[in-house]
C-alpha cells in the first residue's frame, strides 16, 4: 500500500517531466545507431554486432537515467521526508527501482525491436532480445540503485556511479547478449534466460536492502 503510494508519486513526477523520460530512450537509439557509422552498414556485420551493441546501449541508458530518479529527491529534501514517512529505507529503494524500471527500463524493452531492425537482427533474435531485456533491465535498475544511493551525497557523481556499477553489470551483460547471439544462430537460449532470471530475483531480494542502507548513510 505504501509501495503503491510511492509508485504513484514517481509516475506523477515523471508525468510532469516527460522530457526526462524520453531522453534515455533517445540516447538508447542514438548509441545504437552510431555503430553502422563506426563499423559498416553491411547487414551481416551489423547482425553479428547487434546483440552486444543493443545490450550495451540499454545498459548505459539505464545507468545514465539513474540520476534523474534519485538526485532530484535528494537535493530538494524530499528524500528525507520519504525516508521518515515510509519508515523503511529498503521499501523506498525498492519503490524507486520499480519506478525507474517502469519509466525507463520497460520503454527500452519496447523500443529494442525497432533497433533490431536498424541492425538487421534476425526475427527469432528479436524475440530473444525482448525477453533478455525484459529480465535483465529490472536487475540493472535494482543494482544501479545501490551505486546511486551510495554516491548521493557527492556532487558530480555521474562518472563515479558508472565506475561503481559497471563491474556489477557484467554478469547481466554476459548472459543477456549471449542469449541473443545464441538465438540469432538458431540455438536454444533458455539457459541464459534462466540465469538472467536468477540474477533478477537475487537483485530483487538483496539490492533494495543494500540500497536502503546506502540511503540511510547518504542522508545521515
Amino acid at each position: 500500500m505504501r509501495l503503491a503510494a510511492l509508485l504513484r508519486r514517481e509516475i506523477a513526477i515523471a508525468g510532469r517531466n516527460k522530457a526526462a523520460i524520453l531522453i534515455p530512450l533517445v540516447f538508447f537509439v542514438l548509441v545504437t545507431s552510431l555503430f553502422p557509422f563506426a563499423v559498416s552498414p553491411d547487414a551481416d556485420q551489423l547482425a553479428l554486432l547487434a546483440p552486444g551493441v543493443i545490450w550495451v546501449a540499454a545498459l548505459l541508458a539505464t545507468l545514465l537515467s539513474l540520476e534523474h530518479f534519485y538526485q532530484g529527491d535528494y537535493l530538494d529534501g524530499s528524500l528525507e521526508q520519504l525516508l521518515l514517512t515510509t519508515g523503511s529505507p529498503a521499501l523506498l529503494a525498492l519503490a524507486k527501482s520499480i519506478g525507474h524500471w517502469l519509466l525507463t527500463g520497460l520503454p527500452l524493452v519496447l523500443v529494442a525491436p525497432m533497433l533490431g531492425l536498424l541492425l538487421h537482427l534476425p526475427l527469432d533474435a528479436q524475440v530473444a532480445m525482448v525477453l533478455t531485456l525484459l529480465l535483465g533491465t529490472p536487475a540493472l535498475c535494482l543494482i544501479g540503485a545501490i551505486g546511486m544511493c551510495l554516491t548521493l551525497g557527492i556532487n558530480r557523481n555521474g562518472i563515479l556511479v558508472s565506475l561503481l556499477i559497471l563491474p556489477l553489470y557484467i554478469p547481466v551483460l554476459i548472459f543477456g547478449s549471449s542469449g541473443v547471439q545464441a538465438a540469432s544462430l538458431g540455438l536454444p537460449y533458455d539457459g541464459q534466460l534462466a540465469l538472467l532470471a536468477a540474477i533478477f530475483i537475487l537483485a530483487l531480494v538483496l539490492a533494495p536492502v543494500a540500497a536502503g542502507h546506502a540511503l540511510k548513510i547518504s542522508t545521515s
Binding site: 532530484g72 529534501g77 514517512t85
Partner: peptide
Amino acid sequence: HKPGLKSELSIAENLGFFRRL
C-alpha cells in the same frame, strides 16, 4: 531546512502524497 516539496507537482499534490505515504 529544505521544504522537501517537489517543484514539478502542485501544492495539493505534494500535500496529498505526504498523506498517502
